[in-house]
Amino acid sequence: MGAASFVVVMCLRTHRGHMDTLRIIVQRLVTIFVVVGVATFFLACLIRLLPGDPASIMVSNALPDQVLNIRRISGLDKNVFGYWWQWFSNMMTGDFGYYYQAAGNNPVSDVLKRSIPTSILMVVYVQIVALLVSVPLGLVSAYKEGTRFDRILQSILFVLSSIPSFALALVFSLFFALRWPILPPLGYATPGENIVLHFKYMVLPVASLAVGIIASYTRLLRADVIATLKEDYVMMAMSKGISNSRVLWKHVLRPSSTTLLTSAALNMGSLIGGTIVIETLFQIPGLGYEIAFAIVTRQVIALQTLIAIVAFAYVFFNSTVDIVANIIDPRTRERRA
């Protein structure tokens, strides 16, 4: 499990020499599995609550023995718990269930192989763009706290943070894909297929998602930088006679960025879920798009798997953010010790 080894590495880096490293890893993993387990069990219950037989809902006009077959493979013939356990234990062994169709069953893993990298790429681009823009903006507006520049920027950011990303997506595609067609309106290419095209397809969706995030990141960072600027060590750094921008970037940014990076880490999970609409609008075959597709086509088993993956990502980043905080700010190590 890549994720688990990630946790291990992070813990080893930050808790070097601590005896409780192993305990923390185990604790985290248990939390992640319990939450994902309970959440998916809840979903399993929902599926069983569906009026009618999930098997015949998935495949309309299915022949009776086909329905029987589906029920057997998917475990729908067992009780809720048995069904859920079969699905959950299959997941652990890499069997992610099937899209059940009249023409035959397609493994969900085939879809995952394409959609997970797509979504991860998109989320990573969004984060990179958001951080690249919001960090300088946050630093400057905090440094100029209370000035006209700062006040105007704050108002603009507040407005931008309240505009839904789909609204921006529609406006952007009207202007940059239809009126002045400099970018493709929808579609996707993987970096392997055509790297230039890949980025062209990514510009509008990433921009639509990034704007709101830039606004909230800038606001978060600004608040923390304002607090940091009052610290003695900032005046101490200034008294060395180094330039203001060096003071901001080298001395102020890092102690002020815990909240920002924590919420960026938290955003990773929710972004994957939050991209559903954007991926649908731009026809990008990521996880969000597949979730929407599974819902519309009533592929409940695939849906359960997809949601579990999103929930896993969400919980994973949720329960490891304090480790991120730890890396940025060594003071938190002291507090724990």
Partner: peptide, 16 residues
């Protein structure tokens, strides 16, 4: 001109 600040607990950057 250089300055030594009052409180060494707060005048050194905690993350560097």
């Amino acid at each position: 001109m250089a300055m030594i600040f009052q409180d060494p607990m707060t005048a050194l950057n905690p993350v560097r």
